[in-house]
Amino acid sequence: MQMAPLDLVILGIYVAFAIGVGFYFRQRASKDPDQFFLAGRKLPWWVVGTSMVATTFAADTPLVITGWVRDGGIWRNWLWWCFAVGGMLTVFLFSRYWRRLGVMTQVESDRSTCCAGCGGASPPGARSRR
């Protein structure tokens, strides 16, 4: 694929922005894992929501969805519109439980529940953040 100069400029701006953000926040993010991965649990709701939505998109997502609509019609969007159910359950239920547990990842949450049920130890990360 041949890239035009404008493509390279856009790519360069994007990479510079990503690296710049890293440099700008390096001191704050170096304090502890909570700061690095969760921004100290102090992000506003709209940043967290945007991050959640951005996570579900890949570079090929628009191509896939366009293909679905071309092959099957607009109704095929329900293949991903149905994700809204999981999203709403995350907002109203699971995110609040994660918050109460003080965990960082879903795996940590599962391990915490499992360990509690089996009588084992709580995950070290969760314990240290209590």
């Binding site: 709701w45 109203f92 547990l101």
Partner: peptide, 18 residues
């Protein structure tokens, strides 16, 4: 009407857990 009440409670709880 529902979400702010739920979040307020958990924000407080989250601060307590830290």
């Amino acid at each position: 009407s529902i979400l702010p009440g739920l979040l307020r409670e958990d924000t407080t709880q989250g601060e307590e857990n830290r």
